[in-house]
Design a protein around this nucleic acid. Structure first.
Lengths: 407, 407
DNA sequence: CTTTAGAAAATCAAGTTGATTTAGTTACTT
DNA sequence: AAGTAACTAAATCAACTTGATTTTCTAAAG
C-alpha cells in the first residue's frame, strides 16, 4: 500500500526548544509592528497573546539591538501613557539585486524598505560568467556609496527570471536567460561578495516586497502575478512563502490558455506568456529588434493610443483573465496582485479591462479586498523584493524557526 | 502606498511558550514514527534533533497515554538493544463521514487508519435538512457497532464536494449539491452528535488520507487530484494542508481547458470537469438517467471495451494532462496523486494514457518520485481521508500548534 | 568456553533558559 | 483624590540540555 520510492529514512521534522521559541517570539513582535505600525508593549502583548512581561523583555532586547525605537509617548488616554515602538529603519540594511535580459539593478534598502542607493547597468542576455562579476561589482559599489556598516548588513537578495533547472525550459526561448540552468548562483555570489545571498525568481521576490512594504502587508495568502519578459507568479500562502519542491512554484508562463494557439519555444502551443508578457507585446508589435526593446516603449504607445498596441491589449486581456481564474481556483487567495516590468500605466490599463472577471471561488460578496490589486512598487518591484528577501528571512515568523538545526 | 482596505488592526501571529513547544515536540515524535515506522528513542532523538532525555520523557508520556507501544527489543547489534516504539492503533479512533450525490458513507478507523466499521446509505442529492439527521444516525450506529470508547474518540471528519460558499457555483449544475451554500455543516453536526467535526472538501480529505497512510506518506508537497462527480484538488504544501482563504483552494473543476468548448452550468465554456469527471463520462455515454448512474458502470464498460467509453477516455486524457500541467506549474509539487470516486481500473487506464505528459517544471531527470501516482485508498478514499482529518489535526506538527490560543 | 573490551541505549540528577505569575510602581485622566 | 492603564521587578515554573552513569548487548581475545 505504501509508496516504496523512498526507502532512505526520511528526515523527520525536527523538534523545538526554548531558544527556538524565543527566536520565534522576537520575530512575532517585529511582524506585529510591521503590520500594524507603531505599537506599545501592552498592545503587542494583547496581539500576540504573550504576557506583558515577556514582551517587555523582548522589546528591551530589540531596542538594545537597534531594531526597534520608541516613538513619542501617547498621552490623552486614561492610565499611564503608552510608549509606542516602531521599527528602526537603521536597524539593518539589505542589498537587492536584479538581473534580467537587458538590465542589472542593485539597491540598498534599510529595514523600512526605503532605498538608500541604487545602481543600474545595461546587459545583453548575460551568461553567468558575464553577470557574476558585474553583480559583485554592483554590490561593492553600493556598499561604498552608502558607507554601509557591514555589521548591519543582513544579506543580499537576488531576483532573476525562472524557472530554475528545468531541462528544455530554463534556457530555451526568448523569455529565458540562456546558460543559467543548474548554475549555482547563490553560492557563487556568496563566494565573490562574502555576503549571504538568497536567490528567488522575480515574481517570488516581488511578492515578498509587496508583503513587507506594499499592498499585501496585511494579507496571509495572496498571489503576485509578475508580468516581465515572461510571466510568473509568486505565492504567499498561509503566512509563508511557498516556493515548491524545486523552487519553481508559480511558473505559470507556460500553462496552456489557448490549446493549439501560438507556438511556444517550450514545444507547447498557446502558452500564457505568448499572450501576456513584454515579449508577447513586442512580438505583436512586429518590432524590428524585439530582443532589445524597452518597456518604456509600451508606455509611450499606450499614451499615444497606438492601434497595434491597443490590439495587443485587447488580445492579452482574456488570457490574463484566465491566468487569474486559474490562480484563484487553484489557490483561493485573498487577492491577486498585478505587477512586474510592464510599465505601471500598462498594468493599470490591463487591470482596468479585466472586468468582468471569470466566475471563480473568489467570486463572493463577502470580500474585504478586491480580487485584483495593482502592486505598489512599480517597475523596481523585483529589486525591491530582492532586497526584502533577507529582511523577510531574518524577521518573519516561520515554521522553520521553531525547528532545531539538525546535525 | 499601503493598502487601506483593512483598517481594523490585523490580529498578529501569536507567540509561543514552553507548553506549545512541548505539544509541538509530541507531535514531532508521532510524525517521525508514522513516517518511518517503529523507532527507538535514540533514533527519534537523532531524527528530531532533540536530546535523548527529552525523547525519553515524551515517549514515556505517549506510552502512558496509550498512543505509543513498545515493539520487540531489537537485538543483534552492538550496545544495549533498542526498544522500538510504534503507534498504538488502539490509541484513538476517528469517525469519517462522506456525503455525495448518491451515497453517504461512514467509517470508524483506529490510529493506524484501519477501518473498524463501515456503514453505507443511499441518498439522492440530499439537502442539508435531509442529510444532517442521516449523518448523525450513521455516526451513532458506528459508535454502537464498535462499542467505541468515547473517551478515545478524537473527533469526526466529514468530506463533501466543494466549492463552499461561492455564489453561482456551489449550488449550480449537476456536479454540485444543491442547498448547501452557507450551511454551517460542522456546527450542525457537532450539535447533533456532540463530537468535534472537521469538514473539508473530498479532495482535501483524500489528500490527508494519502499523506497519513498512503502513497504520500513521506511527501512534503503534493497534490491530490480527485476525480469524483466533479473534479477538485487537495493541496498539501510544505508539510501543511493548504485550504485557501475560503476553504476553496484546489477547486480547479472550473478552470477553462478548452476556451469556447462545452458549456458549463457555471456560465463558462470548456471547464475541466466537463471533460474529466464521472459526470462528464456519464454525459458522454448519453445515459438515460445520468443523475443516478453509478461509477461501477464505468468499470464494466472499461472491462468490456465499450467503444463510447473508450472515446470518452481518449477525449479526457488531454484535459487531464492539462490539469496536471497547471498544477505542476502553479505548485511545483513532488508528485500528483490521482484518485477519487472514479473506479481504480478507470483511474489506472487514464494514468496509463497520460504519457507523454506536458513539459513542465516537473520535467526533470532528478526525480525521486514519479510525476503521477495513483492513490492507494481506492474509492473509499474520501471517507478514509475524512477519518484521517481529526487524527491529522491532533497529531501532525503544525505551525498553529506553536501559537498560543489568543483571547 | 570464558572473559573482557567496546558500543549503543537508556536513565539520573543537576543546570539552564525563558515564559508566567504576582505584587507592586508610575504617570497619566477625570 | 480616585481610577486606570502601562510598565517593572522578583519569584516561580515548565521543559529542554548536559554530562555522568548504568544497562545490556556484541565481538574479540585469551
Amino acid at each position: 500500500m505504501a509508496g516504496n520510492y523512498l526507502m532512505i529514512p526520511k528526515k523527520a521534522i525536527s523538534g523545538t526548544n526554548l531558544e527556538q521559541a524565543k527566536s520565534h517570539n522576537r520575530r512575532v513582535v517585529i511582524e506585529a509592528i510591521r503590520i500594524n505600525g507603531a505599537l506599545s508593549r501592552a498592545a503587542i502583548a494583547r496581539l500576540t497573546a504573550l504576557s506583558s512581561q515577556t514582551i517587555s523583555n523582548i522589546v528591551e532586547e530589540l531596542e538594545a539591538a537597534g531594531l526597534l525605537r520608541p516613538e513619542a509617548t501617547l498621552k490623552g488616554a486614561r492610565g499611564q501613557p503608552a510608549v509606542p515602538y516602531s521599527i528602526n529603519p537603521d536597524g539593518g540594511y539589505s542589498i537587492g539585486l536584479q538581473l534580467d535580459h537587458q538590465l542589472a539593478v542593485g539597491v540598498v534598502t534599510d529595514l523600512s524598505g526605503t532605498v538608500r542607493a541604487r545602481v543600474e547597468r545595461d546587459v545583453d542576455r548575460p551568461t553567468p560568467t558575464q553577470a557574476m562579476p558585474l553583480l559583485a561589482a554592483i554590490s561593492s559599489d553600493l556598499i561604498a556609496t552608502c558607507r554601509l556598516d557591514r555589521t548591519r548588513l543582513l544579506g543580499a537578495g537576488m531576483a532573476m527570471p525562472g524557472p530554475f533547472g528545468v531541462e528544455g525550459m530554463t534556457s530555451v526561448g526568448p523569455t529565458a536567460l540562456p546558460g543559467w540552468q543548474d548554475f549555482p548562483v547563490a553560492e557563487e555570489l556568496e563566494r565573490l561578495t562574502g555576503i549571504a545571498v538568497i536567490v528567488e525568481n522575480d515574481a517570488t521576490a516581488a511578492a515578498v516586497g509587496e508583503r513587507l512594504y506594499g499592498v499585501a502587508r496585511k494579507l496571509d495568502s495572496f498571489v503576485y502575478l509578475f508580468i516581465g519578459t515572461g510571466l510568473g507568479a509568486g505565492l504567499f500562502l498561509d503566512g509563508h512563502l511557498y516556493k515548491g519542491r524545486r523552487h519553481n512554484a508559480g511558473e505559470i508562463g507556460h500553462i496552456i490558455v489557448k490549446p493549439g494557439g501560438l507556438p511556444c519555444d517550450c514545444g507547447k502551443r498557446g502558452c500564457l506568456e505568448r499572450y501576456v508578457s513584454l515579449r508577447a507585446a513586442y512580438d505583436r508589435l512586429d518590432l524590428p529588434d524585439p530582443d532589445h526593446a524597452s518597456p518604456d516603449l509600451l508606455e509611450e504607445l499606450l499614451a499615444s493610443g497606438d492601434s497595434r498596441f491597443e490590439a495587443w491589449l485587447a488580445e492579452a486581456v482574456e488570457p490574463l483573465r484566465q491566468a487569474i481564474d486559474v490562480l484563484e481556483m487553484a489557490l483561493d487567495p485573498e487577492t491577486v496582485v498585478l505587477g512586474g516590468f510592464m510599465p505601471l500605466p500598462v498594468i493599470e490599463a490591463l487591470a482596468g479591462r479585466l472586468e468582468p472577471l471569470h466566475l471563480s471561488v473568489s467570486s463572493t460578496s463577502a470580500r474585504t479586498t478586491p480580487r485584483v490589486l495593482v502592486g505598489a512598487a512599480g517597475k523596481d518591484t523585483s529589486v525591491l523584493g530582492a532586497a526584502a528577501l533577507p529582511i523577510f528571512s531574518e524577521t518573519n515568523p516561520q515554521f522553520d524557526v521553531l525547528q532545531k538545526p539538525v546535525g
